Computed example of a mutant assay.
Amino acid sequence: MSRAVVYETFGGPEVLELREVPEPHAGPGEVRVRVTAAGLNPMDWSIAAQPELAAQFGISLPSGFGYDFAGVVDEVGAGATGFAVGDRVHGGAQGRAVADFVVVGTPTEVTEPLWHTPEGISDEVAATLPVAGLTAAAALAAIDLRSGDTVLVGGAAGGVGVFAVQLAKLAGADVIGTASQGTFAFLRRFGAEPVTYGPGLADRVRALAPEGVTAATDLFGTETAETALALGVPPERISTIAAGPHPPGGARATGGFDASPDAMARIADALLAGTVTVPIAATFPIEQTRDAVALQAARHVHGKVVLTLRPDPH
């Protein structure tokens, strides 16, 4: 037997249970990963709480939990390619990541990717990259962000936001990030000029950027996209990740699945070079998954929340 976090009804953190489940094994063309860390994303607990959203991701009850994971390959099925026992890896497994073992196919798919983890990047950091890192990269690629841009980033202190801010700075852009007052010092560490979200945002942005904003990405809802339109930013230079398939004013909807094939390698290189860092706000053992989800769902955490897994002593 092995352990996995599962839920049998939709709801808040209270529906998540750590259970003993049959140990999965790699079949033909598959590899099994012993998971050592799983990064949490708002998508995870939103899916667990909202049946309609779960259906969009093909998830039905009962379900496992989480998407981002990192660990070590410990089984390789017949015909599986690209990975060997002992390889450190990170990737995505929809509704299965928070478990002792994850089985994924090879060659890996866009929806459930698997990458080798470079030496110098910890499993805890690697487990934060698939959703947040790729979503940030896609959000900036969708607006063709380039050196000299002044970009407005909505939700800049969130899990995706901290990647977007750093990748935008790396591209040579000036960054204005919407956030709550309590996160201003945190955002300035990454080179962003923070601005309070809410009514009057457009006026506050004009004061910070009198020469104008040239691009924007909204990582939370629609406020930043609507503000950018009001400031005269062309819709093709505005991206959204959480506004549904039809963002305001013809802005571009995108997500991690749209990231370029080399995006993860570029993020890994930046991490190794020290030009991008991942702020991990808190780590919890798998036994405290409910507490970890409750912390993140409160939206007051600065950075990523990661679950750690150690082999079951039994």
Score class of each variant (00 low, 15 high):
Ser2Asn: 05
Val6Glu: 13
Glu8Leu: 05
Glu14Asp: 12
Leu18Gln: 08
Glu30Ala: 03
Val31Asn: 00
Arg32Lys: 09
Val33Asp: 02
Pro42Gly: 01
Met43Lys: 10
Ile47Gln: 13
Gln50Glu: 13
Phe57Val: 00
Phe57Tyr: 10
Gly58Met: 02
Gly82Ala: 01
Gly82Leu: 00
Gly95Arg: 09
Asp100Trp: 09
Asp100Glu: 14
Val102Thr: 05
Val103Phe: 00
Thr106Ile: 01
Pro118Arg: 06
Glu119Val: 07
Ser122Trp: 03
Val125Trp: 14
Thr128Phe: 15
Leu140Ser: 04
Asp144Ile: 10
Arg146Gln: 12
Asp149Val: 08
Thr150Val: 15
Gly155Met: 11
Gly159Asp: 10
Gly161Val: 11
Phe163Pro: 05
Ala164Met: 09
Val165Gly: 06
Ala171Tyr: 03
Ala173Glu: 05
Asp174Val: 07
Ile176Lys: 06
Thr178Cys: 08
Ser180Phe: 04
Gln181Ala: 15
Gly182Leu: 11
Thr183Ile: 01
Phe186Trp: 09
Phe186Ser: 13
Leu187Gly: 04
Gly191His: 05
Asp203Tyr: 15
Leu208Val: 03
Ala209Lys: 08
Pro210Ala: 01
Gly212Glu: 03
Thr214Ile: 11
Ala215His: 11
Leu219Lys: 11
Thr224Arg: 14
Leu229Cys: 10
Ile238Cys: 11
Ile238Gln: 12
Gly249Leu: 08
Ala251Asn: 05
Ala259Asp: 00
Asp262Met: 08
Ala268Ile: 08
Val276Lys: 03
Thr283Ser: 15
Ile286Tyr: 01
His302Pro: 01
His302Leu: 12
Gly303Glu: 05
Lys304Thr: 12
Val305His: 03
Pro311Thr: 06
Pro311Tyr: 10
